[in-house]
Amino acid sequence: PTIVLKVSPEELKALEKAGVEIEKIEKNEDGELYITLTPEALKKAGFE
Score class of each variant (00 low, 15 high):
Pro1Lys: 12
Pro1His: 09
Pro1Ala: 15
Pro1Asp: 09
Pro1Ile: 11
Thr2Ala: 05
Thr2Ile: 14
Thr2Trp: 13
Thr2Asp: 09
Ile3Gly: 02
Ile3Val: 14
Ile3Trp: 07
Ile3Tyr: 13
Val4Met: 09
Val4Thr: 15
Val4Trp: 05
Leu5Phe: 08
Lys6Phe: 07
Lys6Pro: 03
Lys6His: 08
Lys6Val: 07
Lys6Ile: 08
Lys6Ser: 06
Val7Cys: 02
Val7Lys: 00
Val7Ala: 03
Ser8Ala: 07
Ser8Asp: 04
Ser8Thr: 12
Ser8Val: 04
Ser8Pro: 02
Ser8Cys: 04
Ser8Arg: 05
Pro9Val: 11
Pro9Asn: 06
Pro9His: 12
Glu10Cys: 14
Glu10Gly: 10
Glu10Ser: 12
Glu10Ile: 08
Glu10Ala: 11
Glu11Cys: 13
Glu11His: 12
Glu11Gly: 09
Glu11Asn: 06
Glu11Tyr: 15
Glu11Pro: 00
Glu11Arg: 14
Leu12Glu: 00
Leu12Gln: 02
Leu12Met: 08
Leu12Ser: 01
Leu12Ile: 06
Leu12Asp: 00
Leu12Ala: 04
Leu12Tyr: 05
Lys13Val: 14
Lys13Tyr: 14
Ala14Cys: 15
Ala14Pro: 01
Ala14Gln: 11
Ala14Leu: 14
Ala14Arg: 15
Leu15Tyr: 10
Leu15Gly: 00
Leu15Ile: 11
Leu15Ala: 03
Leu15Asp: 00
Leu15Trp: 08
Glu16Met: 09
Glu16Ile: 14
Glu16Thr: 10
Glu16Ser: 08
Glu16Leu: 13
Glu16Trp: 11
Glu16Pro: 00
Glu16His: 13
Lys17Asp: 12
Lys17Trp: 11
Lys17Arg: 13
Lys17Ile: 13
Lys17Phe: 10
Lys17Tyr: 11
Ala18Ile: 11
Ala18Leu: 14
Ala18Asp: 05
Ala18Arg: 09
Ala18Lys: 13
Ala18His: 09
Ala18Phe: 09
Gly19Val: 02
Gly19Thr: 02
Gly19Asp: 05
Gly19Ile: 02
Gly19Cys: 04
Val20Ile: 14
Val20Ala: 05
Val20Pro: 00
Val20Ser: 02
Val20Arg: 00
Glu21Ile: 06
Glu21Lys: 04
Glu21Trp: 04
Glu21Tyr: 05
Ile22Gln: 00
Ile22Cys: 03
Ile22Ser: 01
Glu23His: 06
Glu23Val: 09
Glu23Leu: 14
Glu23Lys: 06
Glu23Tyr: 05
Glu23Pro: 03
Lys24Val: 06
Lys24Tyr: 10
Lys24Phe: 10
Lys24Asn: 10
Ile25Gly: 01
Ile25Arg: 03
Ile25Phe: 07
Ile25Asn: 01
Ile25Gln: 04
Ile25Ser: 03
Glu26Thr: 11
Glu26Tyr: 11
Glu26Pro: 01
Glu26Trp: 14
Lys27Asn: 09
Lys27Trp: 12
Lys27Ser: 13
Lys27Asp: 06
Lys27Met: 11
Lys27Arg: 12
Lys27Pro: 08
Asn28Gln: 10
Asn28Trp: 08
Asn28Gly: 13
Glu29Lys: 12
Glu29Asn: 14
Glu29Ala: 14
Glu29Ile: 11
Asp30Pro: 04
Asp30Phe: 13
Asp30His: 13
Asp30Met: 14
Asp30Arg: 14
Asp30Val: 15
Gly31Phe: 03
Gly31His: 04
Gly31Met: 04
Gly31Thr: 02
Glu32Phe: 14
Glu32Lys: 08
Glu32Ser: 13
Glu32Gly: 10
Glu32Asp: 14
Glu32Arg: 07
Glu32Cys: 05
Leu33Met: 06
Leu33Phe: 11
Leu33Asp: 01
Leu33Ile: 15
Tyr34Cys: 04
Tyr34Ile: 08
Tyr34Ser: 06
Tyr34Asp: 02
Tyr34Met: 09
Ile35His: 00
Ile35Asn: 00
Ile35Gly: 00
Ile35Phe: 01
Ile35Leu: 06
Ile35Val: 11
Thr36Asn: 03
Thr36Glu: 08
Thr36Tyr: 11
Leu37Pro: 00
Leu37Glu: 00
Leu37Met: 09
Leu37Gln: 00
Leu37Cys: 05
Leu37Gly: 01
Thr38Glu: 06
Thr38Pro: 02
Thr38Gln: 07
Pro39Gln: 15
Pro39Phe: 12
Pro39Thr: 08
Pro39Ala: 10
Glu40Asp: 09
Glu40Gly: 02
Glu40Val: 02
Glu40Trp: 01
Ala41Asp: 07
Ala41Val: 02
Ala41Trp: 04
Ala41Asn: 10
Ala41Tyr: 02
Ala41Lys: 01
Ala41Phe: 02
Leu42Cys: 05
Leu42Asn: 02
Leu42Pro: 02
Leu42Arg: 02
Leu42Thr: 03
Leu42Phe: 15
Lys43Trp: 05
Lys43Glu: 15
Lys44Asn: 15
Lys44Ser: 15
Lys44Arg: 04
Lys44Tyr: 11
Lys44Phe: 14
Lys44Cys: 03
Lys44Met: 15
Ala45Arg: 02
Ala45Lys: 02
Ala45Met: 05
Gly46Thr: 03
Gly46Cys: 10
Gly46Asn: 06
Gly46Ser: 03
Gly46Glu: 12
Phe47Ala: 05
Phe47His: 05
Phe47Asp: 03
Glu48Trp: 04
Glu48Tyr: 02
